[in-house]
């Protein structure tokens, strides 16, 4: 197991947001977390990234293991630098006052492997040709879809081999959305492990190997994608009958 979440309880202030959830991600897998708004999906990813309060939640119980080691005491930036875990957050959170190129350069802040960084630039510009066009443009002037590409490209530029994506399809036109998932699939085939949040359960189950269904801070269903697609409860609640 690459990532193992063990009975994690977290709080924002005094409100408990996750009531003891457990799941795991294996090396080379695509795992999806699905569920309605407010189910705790984003909270789960924020917990894993170790972003400190007030923005991040506080873990009150449980543990998170990465390659068998607890990452609870690890600081957020160390997690990216040394553990190579990246997050493309919900709402993109790109640095709008910087150019596209500067956004990508910043993501290499902690990296020293110059030759590989150069290859990664080429790879990102190759995967998202739109970003090449917009290279020297302030990123806040781009469309939502382009910003989403930048958010994913930036996560790739951290040199991580495990990447978490929070609704990468949000705000994308259907065509761009399929483009995005095609890119992610290709990355996975090259060995990238992906943990994904997706509102569109259809799309998520088609794309992921396995999935977990979250509801109000608890995992209510899990299994491989085919199983879940045929699970009557999941069908009724998330796939529209």
């Amino acid at each position: 197991m690459l990532l193992e979440i063990k009975d994690i309880h977290v709080k924002y202030g005094n409100i408990e947001a996750l009531h003891g959830i457990s799941f795991h991600v294996n090396q080379g897998e695509i795992v999806a977390l699905i569920g309605a708004n407010g189910a705790g999906k984003t909270t789960t990813l924020h917990t894993i990234t170790r972003v400190p309060p007030p923005e991040g939640p506080k873990v009150t119980k449980g543990d998170i293991l990465y390659k068998g080691k607890s990452i609870l005491p690890v600081e957020a930036h160390i997690l990216v630098r040394d553990y190579k875990i990246a997050l493309a957050p919900e709402g993109r959170h790109i640095f709008g006052n910087l150019t596209v190129e500067e956004n990508l350069i910043l993501a290499t802040y902690a990296r020293k492997d110059k030759a590989q960084i150069k290859k990664d630039y080429e790879k990102v510009y190759d995967l998202f040709p739109k970003l090449t066009e917009r290279r020297y443009q302030k990123s806040e002037t781009m469309s939502g879809g382009e910003q989403q590409m930048l958010a994913v490209g930036r996560a790739l530029m951290t040199g991580s081999n495990f990447i978490m994506l929070d609704e990468p399809s949000m705000g994308l036109a259907p065509l761009l959305m399929y483009d995005m998932f095609r890119v992610l699939k290709a990355l996975n085939e090259e060995g990238m492990t992906i943990l994904l949040i997706e509102q569109n359960a259809h799309l998520a189950l088609k794309f992921a190997h396995r999935a977990y269904v979250l509801d109000t801070g608890e995992i209510v269903a899990q299994g491989n994608s085919v199983e879940l697609m045929n699970n009557p409860d999941v069908k009724k609640a998330y796939l529209g009958g």
Binding site: T49, E75, A86, L87, H93, G96, N97, Y109
Partner: peptide, 14 residues
């Protein structure tokens, strides 16, 4: 970057 979006800065390993 910090002035624009503090949340995303540690996610870049900074």
């Amino acid at each position: 970057a910090i002035s624009y979006d503090k949340f995303a800065v540690p996610l870049m390993g900074i």
